[in-house]
Design a protein around this nucleic acid. Structure first.
Lengths: 334, 334
DNA sequence: CCGAGCGGTGTAATCGTTTACCAAGTCATG
DNA sequence: CATGACTTGGTAAACGATTACACCGCTCGG
């Protein structure tokens, strides 16, 4: 069996209370005893038991996180940033994958609650179907929605300003002279897709270009990007620019254009969203909207901590402005 | 405060023992009381406290995992597969990022041990410097090394047969007539890099092609792939094929070749390793060595469970054969 | 010289479960 | 009918830490 604080106390000839006070820095202990305890702990190779501490303390110093699908290349960077931010304040991350399934999402939320995480970070799978999970969790502990949010539901949210991001892309290509602009994105199942669609609609309307190009809505995947490219190629003429809902779509689309000998950016401009690792490595390198992961993650934790300190804090929705990264897919190497 | 089993018992008019037996399925309880307890639990919205259960039980039903760097696109797919496998058996994943730093790796290992994870999955940052962490952990609990391993250290390992993977790539390009073969990979800091280098050396020696092309060792990144491409371009003539240590390197190299108007596969063949999500989307689509993540993950958990059941089990090293995925970067669309 | 105050230490309660052990009742069997 | 086996329920002791409270021995002021 492992060494407990009782063993340490015994060997040092003190009570467990004293040993605990030395090792977890409670009240003052005389220098002599403190040394004896530390010495004894070192000799025995004592390591505290976080489970017992958590039970007594009522806090686990851990945060749960549920991600729609870790395999999706955008989420790992968010996970990484969150994990790093948490570890800076001595907390650990319990990570769950919802496998794109709201029912699974709810189940994972329950196990995280059972594990008494101090707070939860949720990237909802769906703008509607994730409500059940969010609802159940939010009634029990501090939750922050990250990146995406559940529709018409007042729970803190931190993410990028999706609509603004798309606006940046639209303005960029119109600035380059594009008149007919197509939009290839995911069906408005999750809030990101909704907001990006809204951004596209609003921006093109404002510029008098609403309806100038096709609006193809499928899913956030390279496969859909390919399929959408084929649809565009089948039309009588190509648009001047294709604004994509995320980088995966854009990369798939670029591949299909390449195969069809459509030249980017000469024949058509293409933009993505997220600035995933491979956006810069695509052919041509992809102009895209960059999400500041580190900022988003740290804001998320900050808000979570604020919420943990004060449950009655008014609900906050923090939309962080993204920035446009211009690369060759719109003819401008940065 | 949250509802405890005591509340449930009280409301049902039974002892906590009975309530516990009903809710956690211990001994038999009469149908009538069982119903009363379940009813009461439902009405109060009782959720068990996994922390208390873990303390009593001595098991947390959680597994720790330390990854060198989640941002690296190869690891998320492993994490996903592991997480899924674990959740199938009702266990959770505590994920830590070592940030490519052995000291951080050791620290994270300690916090996972403090949290009493039932077992640990470690992808060591380094073949040598990760020894400290592995050493300390392995003396306390079941550990499996995943993907990479620490040199000359007997702890279970599950991963792909790296040397075989490279051999497949080398044989593939020689089968296509390549005589001068260059190798661009990472310096042998971690075991994957070591084994892939060994595979390349052995395979080329066997084929009488040892030393036919340059051997450039840097790191597993697209940036290094670019730099290496420039080095190759600066040589008097290009090799017939470039075998890359992983896909990121290959993609970076492809980009640089493209910029220099070197045609792949006409002028030079290129292969990668890992079959990350974007290998198929590269230009041209990348011939690569596929790691079967699901198999690797499930073998990993199987071995971990075996080790948990019997500490004295002889050390196992399970190398799983990868497969070659041929695409256009070697002229063969599959 | 006495009592209050205080710093340092120990005893024991506590966190929420599970479970070893015990008591009481039922049933079957000799 | 007595006895042992078996069932079912409750009581209380764990699990390993933290911490409220009591206590002891000083010092210091009146």
């Amino acid at each position: 069996m492992a060494i407990t604080i009782k063993d340490v106390a015994e060997r040092a000839g003190v009570s467990v209370a004293t040993a605990s006070r030395v090792l977890s820095g409670g009240r003052k202990v005389s220098a002599e005893l403190a040394d004896r305890v530390r010495e004894s702990a070192r000799e025995l190779g004592y390591r505290h038991n976080a489970v017992a501490r958590a039970l007594r303390h009522g806090r686990t110093s851990s945060v749960g996180m549920i991600v729609p699908e870790i395999g999706n290349p955008f989420f790992p960077s968010l996970v990484e940033a969150v994990e790093r931010t948490l570890s800076d304040s001595g907390r650990d991350l319990l990570l769950c994958d919802a496998q794109q399934d709201p029912a699974m999402e709810l189940r994972r939320a329950r196990t995280l609650m059972a594990r008494q995480v101090d707070g939860l970070i949720l990237i909802p799978v769906s703008a509607s179907a994730s409500r059940a999970a969010l609802d159940e969790v939010a009634s029990q502990l501090p939750v922050i929605q990250l990146d995406r949010f559940v529709q018409d539901y007042l729970v803190d949210w931190v993410g990028v300003d999706d609509a603004l991001g798309i606006t940046l892309a639209v303005e960029h290509v119109t600035g380059l002279g594009a008149k007919r602009i197509a939009f290839v994105s995911a069906a408005p199942e999750c809030s990101s897709a909704q907001q990006r669609l809204r951004g596209f609609t609003d921006a093109t309307r404002r510029l008098g270009l609403l309806g100038s190009g096709s609006r193809l809505l499928g899913e956030f995947s390279a496969g859909w990007g390919r399929a959408a490219a084929q649809k565009l190629l089948a039309e009588s003429s190509l648009p001047d620019a294709v604004v994509c809902g995320n980088d995966e779509i854009a990369v798939g689309l670029l591949g299909e254009f390449r195969r069809a000998r459509v030249r980017v950016p000469d024949d058509v401009l293409v933009t993505g969203f997220d600035d995933i690792r491979f956006a810069a490595l695509a052919d041509p390198p992809l102009t895209t909207v960059r999400q500041p992961h580190e900022v988003i993650a740290s804001e998320c934790i900050r808000l979570l901590d604020a919420r943990m300190n004060d449950t009655d804090l008014p609900v906050q929705r923090i939309a962080i402005a993204p920035s446009l990264i211009t690369r060759e897919s719109t003819g401008i190497a940065s």
